[in-house]
Amino acid sequence: MDIQHHMLVAFAKSYGLFYLLAMAAAALIYACWPANRARFDKAARDIIDDEDKPWR
């Protein structure tokens, strides 16, 4: 049981930090990627008028 606990702590304190940093970097790069800008702007604008009918 002791070994398991120590392993978990070591894992959380070392690898845990880096995988969170990597995920944060991935999210930031996706959000700030210049090529995505137009797509995001369009997505934000398009919901303003969507009450009519489903598209076919």
């Binding site: 944060a24 959000a31 995001f40 702007d41 934000a44 303003i48």
Partner: peptide
């Protein structure tokens, strides 16, 4: 009005989930 920053909404989403 469209959301002020769509990028911020994405970053916020992953922040909240992680």
């Amino acid at each position: 009005r469209p959301i002020y920053s769509y990028r911020m909404s994405i970053v916020g989403f992953w922040g909240i989930t992680f």
